[in-house]
Amino acid sequence: MTEYLEHSLTSGSGSGLPLLIQRTLAKQISLSECIGKGRYGEVWRGVWHGENVAVKIFFSRDEASWRRETEIYSTVLLRHENILGYIGSDMTSRSSCTQLWLITHHHPLGSLYDHLNRTTLTHHQFMKICLSAANGLVHLHTEIFGTQGKPAIAHRDIKSKNILMKLNGSCVIADFGLAVTHVQATGEMDVGSNPRVGTKRYMSPEVLEETINTECFESYRRADIYAFGLVLWEVCRRTLSNGIAEDYKPPFYDLVPNDPSFEDMKKVVCIDQQRPNLPNRWASNATLSGMAKLMKECWHHNPNVRLPALRIKKTLVKLASSDIHVHLDLDI
């Protein structure tokens, strides 16, 4: 079956198995345990021909997210070591209910959010996480030209829960239910038809103020960068310097309630123009103070000032190369 998994990554124009095989996928998978629940539905670990796979089962009310992810994965050369590997989608009937399945590679360590809650990081581990996530974002944001190309993609829901940990310590970006695609040659932008919005805690000022130019693809990329800056902050807090790290906290934990409203976030981010605070200990560590500068450039109030993903990646490579605790065979 491994050759199927291998094939699933290289078949046709998109990624995933040939459609004919996809249509019978659900029948071949036995669900073992529920490994996550969210507003969209549930994620299960499934077994498919002896291999572990992840099965995201959408509530039927969120069919738009399932359709969008399936569309993005199947029309696009998304195959990349830092993007969640896609196997296929299926619609199945269980106890007279229609279930929408999205089948992907399984990552037993769970999300970056889970990982940060569980453990502190060495400089090497932290750099591997940041570099691989940035690498995935560069791949998404970049259009690849030619018949075997891919459009540029903006994610629109970047957060630590949508980044998954691989066993080798690097990450993959997941959840394309809100993605927007753009093809430069035709100027065509596909926003999909999903009524769902991103995660309020990670929304950029222009999204909260509703001043974002929805006609312009670059606006969506810049909103991704803002959210990515918040993720970098989450990771840095858990990174050890002088044997110390902060407890895991989500961005704005000290400023908004647990499930903040649009208004809560708007007040903090737009009106008060607050950003997550930077612990004092970072100042005495060259890498963490370099990271502090980088995240400020990502979450700047003015979207035009924010760095492009490639610039972030290059800055991270530079920070890594001047850090004696990081071996640059980071094999990202």
Rank of each mutant, 00 (worst) to 15 (best):
S95L: 01
L100K: 03
I87V: 12
A152M: 10
R118N: 07
E81A: 12
Q125I: 06
I144Y: 12
L164Q: 04
E81G: 10
V76K: 13
L84M: 14
V138C: 01
L164T: 00
C97E: 15
S93Y: 07
K166V: 08
R79W: 06
K159G: 04
L164E: 06
S89T: 09
H124F: 00
P151I: 09
L116A: 07
G85D: 13
L164N: 06
R156L: 13
E143W: 06
N82P: 03
T98V: 13
C97L: 13
L100P: 03
P151F: 04
I87S: 10
L84F: 08
I163E: 06
H123W: 02
H139V: 00
N162C: 10
N117H: 13
K161W: 01
S89E: 08
Y113E: 15
F126S: 12
H107F: 14
R79Q: 12
S95Q: 14
D90I: 05
L140Q: 07
T120K: 09
N135E: 07
D114P: 00
H115N: 08
L131G: 01
T122D: 06
G88Y: 09
T92A: 15
R94A: 12
D90V: 04
K128V: 02
P108Q: 09
D114R: 07
I83W: 11
T142L: 07
F126Q: 09
L164K: 03
I153Y: 12
L131F: 01
D114W: 02
Y73R: 03
L102A: 10
T75Q: 15
C97Q: 15
H115I: 11
Y73L: 09
T119Q: 01
D114S: 13
M91I: 15
L140K: 03
L84N: 01
A152S: 08
M91K: 11
T119D: 01
L121E: 06
K128H: 06
S111E: 08
T75K: 15
L137E: 09
V138F: 00
Y86N: 10
L137N: 06
K166G: 09
I103L: 13
W101L: 12
A134T: 07
G136L: 09
L78P: 08
A152F: 06
H105C: 11
T122M: 03
T142M: 05
T75G: 08
T75L: 02
H107L: 14
T120L: 10
N82M: 04
H105R: 14
L77N: 14
L100I: 00
G149M: 13
L121A: 05
L102K: 08
R118L: 14
N162L: 02
Y113L: 02
N117D: 03
R156F: 05
